[in-house]
Amino acid sequence: MNTDRREFIKRSVKAAGVSVLSGGAVWYFIKRSRKISRAQELHKPDYQRGREASLISVANGQGPEKNLAGALENIGGLGRYVKRGEVVLIKPNVGWDRTPAMAANTNPELIGALAGLCFKAGARKVIVTDNTCNEAKRCFLRSGIGAAAEQAGAQIMMPGKRDYCEADLGGKFIGLWPVLKILYEVDRVINVPVLKHHAGSGLTMSMKNWYGVIGGGRGRLHQKMDQGIVDLAAFVRPTLTVLDAHRVLLRNGPTGGKLRDVKELNTLAVSTDEVATDAFGAELMGRPRDSIGYISLAEKRGLGTAEYKRILVTG
């Protein structure tokens, strides 16, 4: 079969037209589905709206699931914070390609239990995400968090380059920075950090955990780490914070890697106040809370109270 020039050009134009149209349509829908409105962008992801009071509750001595249930009960149950039909974002620490025993990541059972409770409270959808330090897939797999979350019916989100948007964090140190879009697209945010040693900030707990919702060259933020942590904590205000101190890293944090770095504390705190949570965590680790720079800085910024004992609820 021979084609003459006219026929060839005709066909080429047709082919080009079809591919441009279909490509354009695909591009448009991808773009549209990922767009966040300017209003959202200017708005900070504040999920503390409607918060009644600053509370903290501690549970220990049992497994993550029972500890969580007990601590939540003290502050009125999860149903007080997560309503029917809502979308909940859970932000554990999944930083490293490490097994649960090494305590470098949040306890997977805890994530599973929390996701389960969210559904029980009526949540429509639960998303678990973190911008990991090691390769994401390995982190979610080896931490056990991927499996635990999926078993509970939650969705895993491993952020790709298109999952971020540039937003003004409005901090003293951090201004425009790539932020996970999902932060703007949910109804509730629950921060679930693990308590562990960290050479830059002393300890990493709840406020430091927000390093995992931003992208970009995060290493640069270590130049003014305490300020960076507080800026982020002022930007993302979670509905709840669940501090995992079941297994904690005493040294060689935040990665650890040996069982001898790990201590079993079997403790957990649930709070609506991140500053109080971190103050509690510091004391749990035997560190005076004013030795952790960002706690007092956050208190000065008005993000919460370091006097956690004043808001402590016991069962």
């Binding site: 490293w96 330090c133 960290h198 050479a199 830059g200 290493g219 270590h222 130049q223 003014k224 780490m225 040294r251 060689n252 935040p254 990665t255 650890g256 890697g257 040996k258 770095d261």
Partner: peptide, 19 residues
């Protein structure tokens, strides 16, 4: 300028990068 990023990421225990 403060920075500990290399030490933070070092996967070895005890860390091969000391401060």
């Amino acid at each position: 300028t403060p920075c500990i990023v290399c030490q933070e990421h070092c996967p070895i225990s005890p860390k091969a990068i000391k401060l």
